[in-house]
Amino acid sequence: MIRVDNVSKTVRSGSEELTILKGISMEIKAGQSVAIVGASGSGKSTLLGLLAGLDSPSSGYIHLQGEDVTAMTEDERAALRARAVGFVFQSFQLLPTLTALENVMLPLELSSAKGARERALELLEQVGLSARAGHYPRQLSGGEQQRVALARAFVVEPDILFADEPTGNLDAVNGGHIEELLFAMNQQRGTTLVLVTHEPHLAELCERRFEMRDGQLAEQH
């Protein structure tokens, strides 16, 4: 499903070169849930971005569903994401000018799928927000916003779901709800889940755990 071969990422900061990821390799099988933990600045988010094809590595290869992401153009990677990838972000990332329903419909519209409205409503129902479909993000609480984001992530029935600190901006109660929903929906659909988190108990819920330290990745057993 996901294969990473000796991936490095270097960025230029002023006149200095900064190596964020150093020769990372890993393999994730279809349907697995994987947590990546590590301190701030250890390179977790950079790795997540590379895995999802949001950015390209300085060296090495990444294969997603058997396709070499590193050889693709930006638009090809976008097409792959539209087809097979879902996202959940720490800061929810809902479009403020769209209603909850329209936010969920957005990825379906991006891939010109039919029946977007019905499917979006169905997903909102699943996260328990069908009554608030016409509300704008600013009218929703943080927990509700993240539930909308979950509905948006699952509406395209992605093969892989990437989650970046999905409970990081929520209190314990709301965070707990989101965790439950995330794992329930994931299991229901058999989606591969790649999760970046600070929170040990969230990582515990995943089948496999990796730790990032100084740009290097090690699996915890």
């Binding site: 999802a52 930006e74 792959l80 539209a82 087809r83 996202f87 990332q93 479009l95 990825p107 891939s111």
Partner: peptide, 9 residues
Amino acid sequence: LMKSLGASR
């Protein structure tokens, strides 16, 4: 965000 959701340039 739209790009991360799969929108091409």
